[in-house]
Design a protein around this nucleic acid. Structure first.
Length: 142
DNA sequence: CGCCTTTGACCCGCGC
DNA sequence: GCGCGGGTCAAAGGCG
């Protein structure tokens, strides 16, 4: 890893836009068009289920992804995106959710630029090919 | 062969 | 001052 990353993290908190949403699916690996590499797994106190940490495999892509199961409904998965992709989709295959990626970027940008909470009028529910449904979007700031 | 996954241990920041 | 939680990294192995 590069000291720059650690330096950036330690010296300066990079303003990575955080965007979280709840999805109902049995699979954690939803191909949004990008490749993710799991780099850690830790159990949360509030949840009896472990939380998974993913990171974009792209070289210049410092995007991080956090996947956790709902404490009350294990059938629901909370995905939190941190940062934005800096390179085009590496997957030449058909992305599972075309609007998915665009939606995240839009929401993240809106949350960062707009101080006031303004919902960009997103699709209420996106149908996932895996049989899941995009339930709701929540501006997660942790 | 290449790529990704998993586990453990380590480290830092903050709270009380 | 001390402790805890959360987060990250590294290495190895397995599989397609």
């Amino acid at each position: 890893m590069s000291g720059d990353e650690i330096k950036a993290k330690k010296k300066k908190k990079e303003k990575a836009p955080r965007f979280a949403f709840m999805t109902r699916t049995d699979i954690d690996h939803l191909d949004d068009g990008y490749r993710w590499r799991k780099y850690g797994q830790k159990a949360v106190k509030n949840s009896r289920f472990p939380r998974s940490y993913y990171r974009c495999t792209s070289a210049s892509c410092n995007v991080k992804k956090r996947v956790e199961r709902c404490m009350s409904d294990p059938s629901y998965v909370i995905t939190t995106y941190e940062g934005q992709h800096n390179h085009p989709v590496a997957l030449n295959s058909t992305p599972l959710i075309p609007s998915y990626n665009n939606y995240i970027t839009n929401a993240a940008f809106a949350a960062t630029a707009a101080t006031t909470v303004t919902t960009p009028t997103p699709p209420a529910m996106l149908k996932l090919e895996h049989g899941g449904l995009l339930q709701d979007i929540l501006p997660c700031y942790h």
